[in-house]
Each structure stands twice: as C-alpha cells, then as structure tokens.
Amino acid sequence: MEVRTIKVFTTVDNINLHTQVVDMSMTYGQQFGPTYLDGADVTKIKPHNSHEGKTFYVLPNDDTLRVEAFEYYHTTDPSFLGRYMSALNHTKKWKYPQVNGLTSIKWADNNCYLATALLTLQQIELKFNPPALQDAYYRARAGEAANFCALILAYCNKTVGELGDVRETMSYLFQHANLDSCKRVLNVVCKTCGQQQTTLKGVEAVMYMGTLSYEQFKKGVQIPCTCGKQATKYLVQQESPFVMMSAPPAQYELKHGTFTCASEYTGNYQCGHYKHITSKETLYCIDGALLTKSSEYKGPITDVFYKENSYTTTIK
C-alpha cells in the first residue's frame, strides 16, 4: 500500500517557510505537534488534498525554529505562539472599519479597549522592536488589523473576551517599542525636605499616572512627601515624541487643539466601556464603527496623549 502524501510549508514567522512532505494517514499533531492554519487549530486533523502548498504555523520545537521565533517575536515564552494563534482565530472574524481616516474595530468580545489602543497607536510616533509587531502594525494602518490585535493580546497575556485596560495595554506595548531616546527629568520640591531631581528613561519617561493635564504637570502637581507634608512635583525636561497622561476616570474637559487623542471610560472596574476622542479640525468621538463630532467635550476621561518633541522648564 502506497503512502499518500502532500507537500506543505511549516513556519513560526510566515517569513521562513520549511518544506514538509506530510503523510495523509496521520494527523498534523502526530507529525508536527500543535499546528495552526489561519489561526485555526488543526492539530487533530489529517492532511487533505486542499492543504497542498498551504502554510501551517507550528510551535518552535527545534533550534532553527526557536531562533526564527525569537528573532521575529522577541520572546522565548513557549506558550506565546499558541496564544497568538488562538487569538487570531477570533480577531480574523472582527470587522476593521476605516473611521475618520483611522483603522478602528467594530465592537465584539469586549474589544473596546483594543480599538482605543489601536486608534491611539496610529496617532503617536512609535516604532516597535519585534519585527512581528512592526509588520502587523503597518498592515493594521492599511486596514488589516487582525494579526496586530492578536499579537497585542498575546504580548499582554490576554484572551479574547476578557476586559482590558488601555493604560495597561499601552504599557505592555511600550515595553516592546523603541523608547531608548526618551528621557524625563522631574523635580520634587518640599518646604521641609528641599528639592530632589529624578531622571527617568524609556517607558517611565512617557507615562504618568495622577493627572490628565500635561500643562498642569509642567506647572506642578501636589504629591505627598515622605515627611508627610505636601510637596510639588513638576516637569523639568521632556525628550520624547509623545507623552501619555493618565488618571482614574473623572469628568474632564478636553479643549480642541490642546491634545492629540484621549480615552474615555464609562462604567466601573468590573464592567465598563471605552471610547476614543481625537482632536482634528474639530473633536471626534470614535466608538467602534461609530463616529460623532463636537466642538467641545466633557466626560469621564482616563488617558490623554500629547505630541511632544523637546521641553525644558522655565521655572527657576
């Protein structure tokens, strides 16, 4: 009895394709271990004539594949690729409408935090270190965002349907971005203890939790000093293409032309909904596939993004 075979390709990165001759009487799992086709788990399936010449994702289970996976995804987590594939199996079914010149995501599976993050990423200057993220990001900007969303979920250790947080998501993504040249110098002034300067680099240099107003941050924000008295913390120097200011959701007025974009969060910790506000020729609110415009805006804002380049204080 002759062994019926077909020729397929296996890959971990969709760049390096490895030619395989597979036995049609055995499952993919018996031949390769966990195997995925377009995100779908085909591990328990036997090869079919229609699979001839198709590319299958496999887990990096030998040295060659491990090197290829690390170079593309910059992670050695053995569960990463499987999590990416199972997320992709959902995100490829989502709709990605162009809204006001940006790629958004039609609401499904509690994905409003991903839509808000995706919209924000198209408006701030950011370059990702893992080629996987950078490639998928370019495709997302062009309207094909399924891979990018699935990668975000995998890097953030999230599953489809789980509630997510924009600030946490951005923080994970910033860790995989090139923020080497970003720098922030802060000064804390206390009447009792004097003053202390701190220099922050990388992710810490672009994120701040405690106030939404970048102007206020430049002037000074009140913080408790270690001595128990009130101290003032203010920005001395900022070198970065953008800054992200966050605070627990509270009524906040966004003035046209003073910011790049913002995240609105309605609801409580267990259950809520994100919308995205962007400042173009007027203010726009993007909620999944829905767009509304207004000249002014007041609502429960939790993150505001500002364009920056270089700032030095005039406070002496």
Rank of each mutant, 00 (worst) to 15 (best):
V3Y: 13
F9P: 01
V12I: 10
Q30K: 14
Q31S: 12
Q31E: 05
F32S: 09
G33M: 01
P34I: 15
T35S: 10
D38H: 11
V42I: 14
T43Q: 12
K54R: 11
T55L: 06
H74E: 02
D77R: 03
P78W: 14
S79C: 12
S79E: 00
F80I: 01
L81E: 08
R83H: 01
S86M: 12
K93R: 14
Y96W: 06
P97L: 14
V99H: 11
N100P: 06
L102H: 14
D109L: 01
D109Q: 13
N110A: 03
A115T: 12
L118F: 11
Q122M: 04
I124Y: 07
F128C: 00
P131Y: 06
A136W: 06
R141Y: 05
E144S: 12
A145D: 03
A146H: 08
L151S: 06
A154R: 04
Y155D: 04
N157L: 03
K158D: 03
V160W: 00
G164T: 00
E168Y: 14
S171R: 15
Y172M: 14
F174Y: 01
F174P: 06
K183A: 01
G194I: 05
G194H: 02
Q195N: 11
Q197N: 08
E204K: 13
E204S: 11
M207I: 04
Y208E: 10
K218L: 04
K219T: 12
I223L: 08
I223T: 11
P224C: 09
C225P: 00
T226M: 09
T226G: 14
C227S: 01
T232M: 12
Y234E: 06
V236S: 03
Q237P: 00
P241G: 00
M245C: 15
S246A: 00
P248E: 11
P248S: 13
L254H: 06
H256R: 12
G257H: 08
F259M: 02
A262S: 01
S263N: 10
T266Y: 05
T266V: 09
G267K: 13
G267Q: 15
Y269H: 15
I277A: 02
T278G: 10
L283W: 01
D287G: 01
G288K: 00
L291P: 10
L291H: 12
S294G: 08
S294F: 15
S294D: 01
Y297C: 07
K298L: 13
I301P: 00
F305E: 01
Y306I: 00
T314M: 14
I315K: 15
K316T: 14
